[in-house]
């Protein structure tokens, strides 16, 4: 949290992000895209769903899909733990849950700290990335939420006919 104090100068240009862990890496998404963060609950598996889709959960009466970011980033899948959380975000007008290993903090990041993505820095496909924030003792990968879904999934999501 030390670096948090150094960057929490209220510069207007600062970007406020939610930082979470996936497979021991720190990722972040813009806080404006995050609806809420909820505890992991039982996820219902839908047979035949796309591979990265874990299943669905009941979010106060609404059934929303849940994506596993480990699977999405082709990382080694592990059992969910007590620290696991579901980050509820909106992509292409649909509410989605992202399963993460844990949520650590909310940060303000000055724009000059953000560098363009480099595939060498992280193990994951650079198309999911919006940039890398270099903080004093840590690198945070900024996710491009709109790229988290594949073009095909994106199309499915935007298609008008609902099942």
């Amino acid at each position: 949290m030390t670096q948090a104090a150094t960057v929490t100068q209220t510069a207007l240009d600062d970007e406020q992000v939610v930082v979470f862990d996936v497979a021991n890496e720190a990722y972040a998404v813009n806080i404006a895209r995050v609806h809420e963060i909820i505890r992991l609950q039982q996820i219902t598996v839908i047979p035949g769903a796309p591979a990265c889709v874990e299943g669905v959960i009941n979010l106060r009466g609404k059934v929303i899909p849940v994506l596993d970011l480990r699977k999405r980033f082709s990382l080694h899948a592990t059992e969910h733990t007590r620290a696991s959380r579901i980050v509820v975000v909106e992509i292409s007008g649909q509410t989605l849950g992202l399963v993460v290993d844990g949520v650590s903090e909310v940060l303000r990041i000055a724009p000059d700290r953000i560098e363009p993505p480099s595939p060498l820095v992280t193990g994951i496909d650079s198309r999911y990335l919006r940039g890398i924030a270099k903080l004093d003792d840590q690198l945070i990968v900024l996710l491009d939420l709109d790229q988290v879904l594949s073009p095909v999934e994106q199309q499915q999501l935007e298609a008008s006919d609902l099942r």
Binding site: I46, G48, V56, V63, E153, Q156, A159, D161, R163
Partner: peptide, 18 residues
């Protein structure tokens, strides 16, 4: 409840029930 477009490929399932 509709499952949404992401599950269009899910054969054998027509929706979700709470």
């Amino acid at each position: 409840k509709p499952l949404g477009n992401l599950f269009r490929s899910a054969q054998g399932v027509s929706g979700g029930a709470v």
